[in-house]
Protein backbone atom coordinates (compact mmCIF):
# COMPACT_ATOMS: atom_id res chain seq x y z
CA UNK A 1 0.00 0.00 0.00
CA UNK A 2 2.03 2.89 -1.23
CA UNK A 3 -0.33 5.71 -2.17
CA UNK A 4 -3.46 7.41 -0.92
CA UNK A 5 -2.25 7.21 2.66
CA UNK A 6 -3.00 9.99 5.06
CA UNK A 7 0.41 10.76 6.60
CA UNK A 8 -1.29 11.40 9.95
CA UNK A 9 -2.48 7.79 10.02
CA UNK A 10 0.80 6.36 8.83
CA UNK A 11 1.82 5.57 12.34
CA UNK A 12 3.93 2.90 13.99
CA UNK A 13 1.00 0.50 13.97
CA UNK A 14 0.82 0.78 10.19
CA UNK A 15 4.40 -0.49 9.93
CA UNK A 16 3.65 -3.16 12.53
CA UNK A 17 0.60 -4.31 10.60
CA UNK A 18 2.54 -4.40 7.35
CA UNK A 19 5.20 -6.53 9.04
CA UNK A 20 2.55 -8.89 10.44
CA UNK A 21 1.05 -9.42 7.00
CA UNK A 22 4.53 -9.93 5.51
CA UNK A 23 5.37 -12.55 8.15
CA UNK A 24 2.13 -14.40 7.47
CA UNK A 25 2.54 -14.29 3.68
CA UNK A 26 3.73 -17.25 1.60
CA UNK A 27 7.38 -17.15 0.49
CA UNK A 28 8.23 -14.69 -2.28
CA UNK A 29 9.70 -17.57 -4.29
CA UNK A 30 7.86 -20.87 -4.43
CA UNK A 31 8.94 -23.01 -7.42
CA UNK A 32 6.63 -25.85 -6.31
CA UNK A 33 3.54 -23.66 -6.62
CA UNK A 34 4.69 -22.34 -10.01
CA UNK A 35 5.26 -25.91 -11.18
CA UNK A 36 1.75 -26.94 -10.08
CA UNK A 37 0.23 -24.13 -12.12
CA UNK A 38 2.39 -25.02 -15.14
CA UNK A 39 1.29 -28.66 -14.92
CA UNK A 40 -2.36 -27.64 -14.83
CA UNK A 41 -1.85 -25.46 -17.90
CA UNK A 42 -0.61 -28.53 -19.74
CA UNK A 43 -3.54 -30.69 -18.71
CA UNK A 44 -6.96 -30.14 -20.26
CA UNK A 45 -9.81 -29.54 -17.87
CA UNK A 46 -10.85 -33.10 -17.09
CA UNK A 47 -14.39 -32.26 -15.99
CA UNK A 48 -15.05 -30.29 -19.16
CA UNK A 49 -13.53 -33.08 -21.20
CA UNK A 50 -15.79 -35.68 -19.56
CA UNK A 51 -18.92 -33.53 -19.77
CA UNK A 52 -18.45 -32.59 -23.43
CA UNK A 53 -17.25 -36.06 -24.38
CA UNK A 54 -20.18 -37.73 -22.60
CA UNK A 55 -22.72 -35.38 -24.14
CA UNK A 56 -21.15 -35.84 -27.58
CA UNK A 57 -21.08 -39.63 -27.34
CA UNK A 58 -24.71 -39.77 -26.18
CA UNK A 59 -25.85 -37.42 -28.92
CA UNK A 60 -23.91 -39.35 -31.55
CA UNK A 61 -25.39 -42.66 -30.40
CA UNK A 62 -28.95 -41.32 -30.53
CA UNK A 63 -28.47 -39.61 -33.88
CA UNK A 64 -26.60 -42.58 -35.34
CA UNK A 65 -29.27 -45.10 -34.36
CA UNK A 66 -31.94 -42.96 -36.05
CA UNK A 67 -29.75 -42.41 -39.09
CA UNK A 68 -29.27 -46.13 -39.61
CA UNK A 69 -33.05 -46.61 -39.65
CA UNK A 70 -33.48 -43.71 -42.02
CA UNK A 71 -30.80 -44.86 -44.45
CA UNK A 72 -32.05 -48.46 -44.26
CA UNK A 73 -35.55 -47.34 -45.25
CA UNK A 74 -34.42 -45.92 -48.58
CA UNK A 75 -34.60 -48.57 -51.31
CA UNK A 76 -31.39 -48.54 -53.33
CA UNK A 77 -33.23 -48.50 -56.67
CA UNK A 78 -35.21 -45.39 -55.67
CA UNK A 79 -32.24 -43.35 -54.47
CA UNK A 80 -30.68 -40.78 -56.78
CA UNK A 81 -27.31 -39.14 -57.26
CA UNK A 82 -24.46 -39.44 -54.78
CA UNK A 83 -26.63 -41.14 -52.12
CA UNK A 84 -27.63 -43.86 -54.60
CA UNK A 85 -24.02 -44.49 -55.51
CA UNK A 86 -22.98 -44.53 -51.88
CA UNK A 87 -25.81 -46.89 -50.90
CA UNK A 88 -25.00 -49.22 -53.72
CA UNK A 89 -21.30 -49.16 -53.05
CA UNK A 90 -21.04 -49.11 -49.22
CA UNK A 91 -24.40 -50.07 -47.74
CA UNK A 92 -26.27 -48.27 -44.86
CA UNK A 93 -23.99 -49.57 -42.06
CA UNK A 94 -20.84 -48.23 -43.69
CA UNK A 95 -22.47 -44.82 -44.28
CA UNK A 96 -23.59 -44.62 -40.63
CA UNK A 97 -20.08 -45.60 -39.52
CA UNK A 98 -18.64 -42.79 -41.63
CA UNK A 99 -21.13 -40.28 -40.17
CA UNK A 100 -20.17 -41.47 -36.66
CA UNK A 101 -16.54 -40.92 -37.52
CA UNK A 102 -17.23 -37.38 -38.71
CA UNK A 103 -19.18 -36.62 -35.51
CA UNK A 104 -16.32 -37.96 -33.39
CA UNK A 105 -13.87 -35.75 -35.29
CA UNK A 106 -16.16 -32.78 -34.71
CA UNK A 107 -16.22 -33.36 -30.96
CA UNK A 108 -12.48 -33.95 -30.85
CA UNK A 109 -12.13 -30.53 -32.50
CA UNK A 110 -14.21 -28.68 -29.90
CA UNK A 111 -12.88 -30.55 -26.85
CA UNK A 112 -10.13 -28.75 -24.93
CA UNK A 113 -6.73 -29.80 -26.05
CA UNK A 114 -3.44 -28.45 -27.20
CA UNK A 115 -5.07 -25.98 -29.55
CA UNK A 116 -7.25 -24.18 -27.00
CA UNK A 117 -5.41 -24.53 -23.69
CA UNK A 118 -1.74 -24.17 -24.45
Amino acid sequence: MTDDLDPMNDDAFDAELTAMFADAAPPAEDPVFVEHVAKRLNNPDRMRFLALGGAGATGSAVAGSQLENLVGLIPADQAHGVLAQALGFFGPEAIVTAVFGLMALGFAWVLPGVRSYI
Binding site: F21, A25, P26, A28, D30, F33, V37, A38
Partner: peptide
Protein backbone atom coordinates in the same frame (compact mmCIF):
# COMPACT_ATOMS: atom_id res chain seq x y z
CA UNK B 1 3.37 -16.95 -17.94
CA UNK B 2 5.31 -19.01 -15.38
CA UNK B 3 7.48 -15.95 -14.79
CA UNK B 4 4.33 -13.93 -14.10
CA UNK B 5 3.11 -16.66 -11.72
CA UNK B 6 6.46 -16.70 -9.91
CA UNK B 7 6.37 -12.90 -9.63
CA UNK B 8 2.82 -12.56 -8.30
CA UNK B 9 2.05 -15.86 -6.55
CA UNK B 10 3.00 -14.56 -3.12
CA UNK B 11 0.65 -11.55 -3.29
CA UNK B 12 -2.27 -13.56 -4.68
CA UNK B 13 -1.83 -16.38 -2.17
CA UNK B 14 -1.38 -13.93 0.69
CA UNK B 15 -4.72 -12.30 -0.09
CA UNK B 16 -6.50 -15.63 -0.44
CA UNK B 17 -4.93 -17.05 2.73
CA UNK B 18 -6.11 -14.10 4.81
Amino acid sequence: FSSLVARHQSAVRAVLMR
